[in-house]
Amino acid sequence: MHEMGIAMQVVKIAADSIPEHIQNPRVEQVNLKIGKLSSVVPDSLRFCFEVITKGTPLEGAVLNIDVAPVVARCRDCGMEWTIEDAVFRCKECNSGSVEVISGRELDIISIEIAD
């Protein structure tokens, strides 16, 4: 539901990242990393991105979304595993002291500009 706000931030950060010396820049690709635990729906984000980039250097750019799995680590026994079904309890020792080490990402990694 907040994908429009996220898309606006992506566009702002991407536009700010275009080197100043490039004349009439055209961004072809925007590479994002989004964790599965961050409540972002990739298709909604793509739709919002398409709508708000019209008439900007990002118009027509492809939004590549690398979806990061939710990886947890047990604070008690050190076990690391990928969480698929929203159960945050250690598979090895049943401890509830679990930290999420990946899966919350909401990052813009890079942009690709036409030569």
Partner: peptide, 10 residues
């Protein structure tokens, strides 16, 4: 040309 950004969206 690829430009590194490496920023949190939020």
């Amino acid at each position: 040309m690829e430009v590194d950004v490496a920023r949190k969206i939020l």
